[in-house]
Amino acid sequence: MRILMVEDAEDLAEGVMAHLARSGMACDLAPSIEDARDARRVQRYDAVILDINLPDGSGLGLLREMRAGADRTPVLMLTALASVEDRIEALDQGADDYLGKPFDQRELEARLRALVRREAERKQEQIVLGALAYAPGPRSATLSGRPLELTRREAALLDVLMRHQGQYLSKTRLYDSLYSFDDADVGVNAIELYIARLRKKVSGSDVGIQTLRGVGYRIGLND
């Protein structure tokens, strides 16, 4: 799961990012609306944490841009403005949820997971490929009816592969889906390790992960 946090309070943002990282969520930080626009141009996010009062304007303006462009990425508004009127305005503009400052990190995480799960369930309850069935909401999978034991990274990688089944995805594309911009200590070749683990877990079934040298990986039915 990859999150974009649009927040100019550095200490607050660092605390949130560290907590989400421990929970297996990659989180990129944009301290301004323009930075958020730049991040969204090059990366797709599962959810956005959006402050209202930002150095270069109101976060509600960015929210309106997203909804006007038919972008349904779940948005959690995060702000010190906690009056009923503020909450109503944010929700009317297309926000999915609202959390006032100060807040508990555990509640923020729970709300994010609920938003992402709700959006995934809205799109599709289950993705099926042969004997493999994947549920985007809880990020769980079964193979021939038996649950697959997946780590957070393995589940995140399977999520991307299943959503693009039949398509070759580059190592860089897969890496960007699993790690934030700040995970500089993790090399792109780590993807090979997770691919190998997933291959082992689906081996013996009618599903396989193919490699096209110089292009990438795809999941599909075995010939």
Rank of each mutant, 00 (worst) to 15 (best):
Y194H: 15
L178V: 00
A155Y: 10
T142G: 07
D28S: 04
E65D: 12
Y98W: 11
G204V: 12
E85G: 09
M1R: 00
Q43D: 07
D96C: 04
I33W: 02
G204C: 14
R2H: 05
A90Y: 05
L54P: 08
L63M: 12
A30R: 09
L169Y: 10
A135N: 03
A135E: 07
V6R: 00
I219F: 11
N222Q: 13
F103I: 07
I3P: 00
N222C: 15
R113A: 02
P102E: 09
A70S: 12
D185C: 11
L78D: 04
E121T: 15
I52C: 02
L20D: 02
Y134D: 04
K171V: 05
Y134M: 02
H19L: 01
A68N: 14
L62R: 00
D71M: 08
F181I: 04
N189K: 01
D182V: 02
G24A: 03
V16E: 03
L54C: 08
T73R: 06
G220E: 12
D223S: 12
I3M: 03
R64S: 07
A18F: 14
L50Y: 10
R122M: 00
D28Y: 04
D51W: 02
R72S: 06
A110G: 09
L178F: 08
R139S: 04
R37E: 12
R153V: 10
S83Q: 10
D56M: 10
G130L: 03
A39F: 09
R41T: 06
N53Y: 01
L20V: 13
A9T: 12
G166D: 09
T211V: 09
Y194I: 06
L78P: 00
S180N: 10
K101A: 02
S140T: 14
M17C: 14
L112E: 03
A21K: 15
A18G: 04
S205N: 06
A131R: 11
E65T: 05
I127R: 13
E34M: 08
V84R: 14
I33F: 01
G214I: 07
I127W: 15
D206K: 05
D97S: 13
I195D: 07
A13P: 14
R37L: 12
G214P: 08
A114W: 00
L178Q: 09
I49E: 08
S180R: 01
